[in-house]
Nucleic acid binder design. Structure first.
Lengths: 235, 235
DNA sequence: ATCGCCTTTACACAAGCTTTACAGTTTGCT
DNA sequence: AGCAAACTGTAAAGCTTGTGTAAAGGCGAT
């Protein structure tokens, strides 16, 4: 999966207030700074304003200026990754958008998982081609060594095979070592969606992490905070 | 789980009289003030009437105005958490509802436990995003050190193993050190429900707290205010 | 179609919250 | 003082809920 999911700043251009509210909530919850414009004209001027955006979510059908126009004009000067959103499901839109330089295309209605998956895919592609800068710091806590730049984890100097999600959960726990991390936080930051009732997926990822870690080093390095979440033990 | 937020007021919008009666009885029993409207129009006007609601339970299929319409119009001005109820189980409804800004979706028929779980999940999410995290300060009173970020308590520099509830009781007492804290307050803020007659659970939590603290440091740091509640001694 | 992996389901288990029970204590009343 | 009623402390039982994890299911990627 992606080597590095480290979005800082996202611009959302869509006239659907409900949708932009939702996107804003979720993306903010994932730790990103989100800016919203509700028509094409305002969106374009913000996009080329000088403020740097790592990703633009762009609706096709909008008042004043549609998404294709925005994209075309934007591409005259910027290479910012763009994910197009549209209510129509036909291929023509898709092809037109991609020809104009969109990075991907997402038909409405879409669910969070799909949105997150596509955002991740774009960011991965972009950061890899842009030389994939490893600005992330390596971490070493309680005999666990984690290197974001190479997506590698070593415990007691033995390499572990982690999935991307497991890696991100571990990284979040290590970044907050000796501090409680709630399941809500993990769900938002790692999976990009709020924790739902009866959702056990975080438990599973932690369980799998523990299994892989304890296969190499004895003792549980992850403490359960019942009814709250988890905590990485510092020692 | 965040128990520091107590639902006060719930609005139920559903044309199924039997169901609303049941919900009303049940939620009232949990200590919430419940208001019921039996069609979408009445529901919407109540929701935006100025009376504050902490949560709205909203049926999809209703006369006059369906749940999606209500939700859409509500979202123009309000961010009140909404839990959608519907007889249909298909994903499209769910996605549409979530896009319009619903917080969750509950297919009928549902049982009490599921309803309560989903309400809790929403409340948890809501209070978390409403700045529950960063403002919690470490406290040091009468040789008791309490750190919310790590959910850790040390007495005379020796770590205690407290449950989350015990931790929250102690924190509440420390926040109000040298001031009386009634059992009613403790029940509301820590357990999230009003104190019932013959309810001894607060006494038990305090008793367990005392036991754990005095195992490490002699002398009772918690004073009993007979007929009122408890107080943490400052010295 | 196949693979990998995320999510859901199911169930046993454990943690810990609440209730029960009873002894001890305080308060209020005569 | 004497007594009853109300309140509190706490051990132990009971019960609810959260958690660990295997296994099945689902879904995007290839």
């Amino acid at each position: 999966m992606n080597k590095e999911f480290h979005l800082q700043s996202v611009l959302v251009i869509d006239d659907d207030i409900e949708l932009t509210d939702m996107l804003s909530t979720y993306l903010s919850g994932m730790g990103y700074s989100v800016n919203v414009k509700n028509d094409g004209e305002a969106g374009l001027s913000e996009a080329i304003s000088g403020h740097h955006y790592d990703l633009i979510l762009l609706d096709v059908m909008m008042p004043k200026m549609d998404g294709f126009d925005v994209l075309q004009k934007l591409r005259a000067s910027h290479t910012t990754p763009v994910l197009m959103l549209t209510a129509r499901g036909d291929d023509y839109d898709r092809i037109l958008g991609l020809e104009l330089g969109a990075d991907d295309y997402l038909p409405k209605p879409f669910n969070h998982r799909e949105l997150v998956a596509r955002i991740k895919a774009i960011v991965r592609r972009y950061t890899l081609s842009a030389g994939g800068g490893g600005t992330e710091q390596d971490l070493l806590i309680n005999d666990i060594f984690l290197s974001p730049s190479s997506q590698q984890v070593k415990v007691s100097d033995i390499a572990l095979e982690l999935t991307t999600t497991e890696f991100m959960v571990l990284r979040l726990l290590m970044l907050n070592a000796a501090q409680r991390v709630t399941k809500e936080q993990i769900s938002l930051k790692v999976l990009g969606k709020p924790l739902q009732a009866f959702d056990r997926s975080i438990d599973m990822h932690v369980s799998n992490l523990r299994k892989k870690i304890s296969a190499v080093a004895p003792g549980d390095k992850i403490k359960t905070l019942r009814g709250v979440g988890y905590m990485l033990l510092p020692e």
